[in-house]
Write a protein that binds this DNA or RNA. Structure first.
Lengths: 253, 253
DNA sequence: ACCTAGCAGCTGTTCAGACCACAATTCCCA
DNA sequence: TGGGAATTGTGGTCTGAACAGCTGCTAGGT
């Protein structure tokens, strides 16, 4: 019946006020908050309180501070770096298994490719083609992974779903080092890499042909092939469930 | 050629050291960091620097501080609440169109139901049944929406994917007021509500029968039916794309 | 008139010291 | 032996100060 009374710490109240102001649109990305010393007067708190609040907002990716500015902390638009950082931390804390990330990529990737097949413009196709050519031209694993990254960015952009785009980007960033290690172990063994590129060409062809089913299926399969090597049997099963429709209805109960 | 020199701020170095120590397992969840004043001596920095670092770690969900403790900041076990909080803020700030949210719910809901059909336990089924009964017993729209919410929570839990669960929860919260307005306009017109409940029963039956395909298809259709009334023709098309496999390959190019 | 070097002011960053509120611990007295 | 009061260590807050970096203006020279 009783709601727990929130004994707010001062800096939390400051965080909430600034956060609300940003979410309410009073400060657009690129705008500047008042300087710290002004915020001290406005909020009626001490300097350290304001600074701790700003540190929190900065770690959330809402604002950015840089010395020498004449205008105060800058409100920045993208929160994704902070999200990526925290997600990586969650993975490192073993709070989120890697297989969950891969599974999510398969789910979201299939949907994004399906949507992209319906909604893509010719400009998207050109950029996908450019990304594939960058993959072919890559000499080291990092560049290759970055090019692959670029391809999927364009796909998500073509899909036109903001949630899919934002979350997908974060998950992709968090798994970036995985794909680098999985597909291209630096020099040699470029067969897997060529196969990987060929997969992307097939996906591109399906998207170009407005064939959402094929694009989704190929994208899922390619992701599965790229990551399955690093997973054990039970984890692979959890991924394989997503690849093909069930053919057995209420059989294995 | 030259890489930008990273002029670290003092508190960032402190954050990194503590963060690494936690990730390295030197501090297990439940352990206590040294008190602030001790950290001041260890790092050779001022108290405010240590405090700003602790605020960042706290906003990431890694540590938790409470006044009066005799042991210092506590290392938290779960980073997920912080991640969820930040994701929720990001969704709010991005001003994501409603159709994108619904589209995402269809995508993620289908996948979650498919996975749940394979991985659910009997306990999950009981809780889903309880949620449906709560929907039947609901008298006002808010309670009804909350019960529906609870059903999907169990489904995501049964699906066993942390990312899907977390993102799905945030998006569901963002659309909670929508379903309340769409399905049950308070009193009267309970036909739509009964149909909605019947849909959930069918989904539950499919999950109980390990029929992932049917569960996914029903879940997508139910969501579409619930929300499509609030959308215009072009938006409905973007949703309908996800409902059934393409039967037309490279036809409408 | 134009350009440039230098200066002043504002910004964030860090430090030191002090005080308060709070909770756990300890100690003393009934 | 039990309970309450004093102690102690903790986080939370504030103040004042000094420093470093950037910006924008200004004064000087060309």
């Amino acid at each position: 019946m009783f709601t727990p009374v929130d004994k707010k710490r001062a800096f939390e109240a400051v965080v909430q006020q600034i956060e609300s102001a940003i979410y309410a649109g009073e400060y657009a990305p690129g705008d500047f908050l008042p300087p710290e010393r002004t915020l001290v007067e406005d909020f009626g708190v001490g300097r350290s309180t304001v600074r701790e609040a700003l540190r929190i907002l900065e770690s959330m990716g809402l604002v950015r501070t840089s010395p020498g500015s004449r205008s105060g902390p800058e409100v920045c638009g993208s929160v994704t770096p902070g999200l990526t950082r925290m997600l990586r931390g969650a993975v490192r804390m073993e709070e989120i298994p890697v297989v969950d990330l891969v599974q999510y990529r398969i789910i979201a990737g299939a949907a994004a490719n399906r949507l992209a097949a319906h909604l893509r413009t010719d400009e998207h196709l050109e950029r996908m083609e450019a990304a594939i050519e960058a993959m072919e031209a890559a000499t080291d694993a990092a560049t290759f992974a970055a090019a692959d990254d670029g391809f999927h960015v364009v796909v998500r952009e073509a899909a036109g779903n903001r949630v899919l785009g934002m979350v997908g980007g974060v998950i992709q960033d968090a798994t970036l080092d995985l794909v680098a290690g999985a597909v291209g172990p630096s020099g040699g063994a470029s067969r897997m890499r060529r196969e990987f590129i060929a997969d992307h060409r097939r996906i591109l062809a399906a998207i170009a042909g407005h064939d959402g089913d094929t694009a989704a299926r190929l994208a899922s399969q390619t992701l599965y092939d790229a990551y399955s090597g690093a997973l054990d049997e039970e984890q692979r099963h959890r991924l394989a469930v997503l690849l093909e429709p069930d053919v057995r209805n209420s059989r294995d109960h």
